[in-house]
């Protein structure tokens, strides 16, 4: 069988983000494999190490620079990667591209992080499932596979629930599911010669969608400091500052 792991690239949490003219400037940021997706990569490896015969394929959609993120997933142990290079506007379009790859590869299981750790979008996993008409289990924190049936537990409103789902399916991963391994040096070496198949895809938006503008609204830190020790006075000053300087409507 084939397991597809959809990975994303996010700014390193340790790196400093720069803002220029109201837009986030990532040109000097160091971009890394999303920690949320690392749980997905690790889970694919664990399923195979538990005895499953599977080919593990990383997939990413977006800028050509995603190749390094795919290599990071390969360095953890995935077998090969597919990179779809295109300027895509929204998670639905990314999901459609991933779904195309899933059809092309005849994948049985798709794993991806529950939430993108830069701007917190949770759409990708459910959107892929919708595109393929597959069942999806989100926020999964325990998983095993017995002969084509996935069993595990995932978060639901107010707690967690056991689930059972037949393949093919989409599962989104989160902290607690496993402890992602380090890419060892020998694996980093090997990952450099693993296949990353790169192809360009046209800009596609979901039906009825139209791209009006694209960008991020960000503000540089204003570096203000409330230097009052009385908590009530400090709170009052914060409120007035938010209203008047930061123009937050309260």
């Amino acid at each position: 069988m084939k397991i597809l792991v959809a990975v994303r690239q996010v700014p390193d949490a340790e790196s400093r983000l720069e803002v220029s003219e109201g837009n986030l400037d990532l040109s000097r940021a160091s971009l890394v494999l999303d920690g949320m997706d690392e749980y997905a990569v690790e889970e694919a490896l664990l399923l195979r190490e538990a005895g499953l015969e599977a080919e593990l394929i990383a997939v990413a959609v977006g800028a050509a620079a995603l190749e390094e993120t795919l290599r990071a997933a390969l360095a953890m142990g995935l077998d090969r990667a597919r990179l779809l290079v295109g300027e895509l506007a929204d998670p639905l379009a990314v999901a459609r591209a991933v779904a195309e790859v899933a059809r092309d590869e005849q994948a049985d299981l798709i794993l991806t992080g529950s939430q993108q750790s830069d701007w917190d979008s949770q759409a990708l996993g459910p959107a892929i499932a919708a595109c393929l008409g597959w069942p999806q289990v989100s926020w999964c924190h325990a998983l095993q596979l017995d002969g084509g049936v996935l069993r595990g537990r995932h978060d639901v409103e107010g707690g967690s629930a056991a689930f059972e789902v037949a393949l093919p399916a989409v599962v989104t991963t989160q902290q607690g599911l496993n402890e992602p391994r380090y890419p060892t040096l020998p694996n980093i070496r090997r990952s450099r010669s693993k296949e990353v198949r790169s192809e360009s895809i046209p800009v596609t938006l979901a039906d009825g969608w139209q791209l009006v503008a694209q960008g991020s609204a960000a503000k540089a830190r204003l570096g203000q400091r409330i230097a009052v020790s009385d908590p009530q006075e400090a709170a009052a000053e914060l409120l007035s500052w938010l209203e008047q300087t930061a123009k937050v409507r309260l």
Partner: peptide, 14 residues
């Protein structure tokens, strides 16, 4: 080389 940067990232996170 990107491979070297991957090694650096590993050492730093360790």
């Amino acid at each position: 080389d990107p491979e070297l940067l991957q090694i650096e990232r590993l050492a730093k996170s360790f």
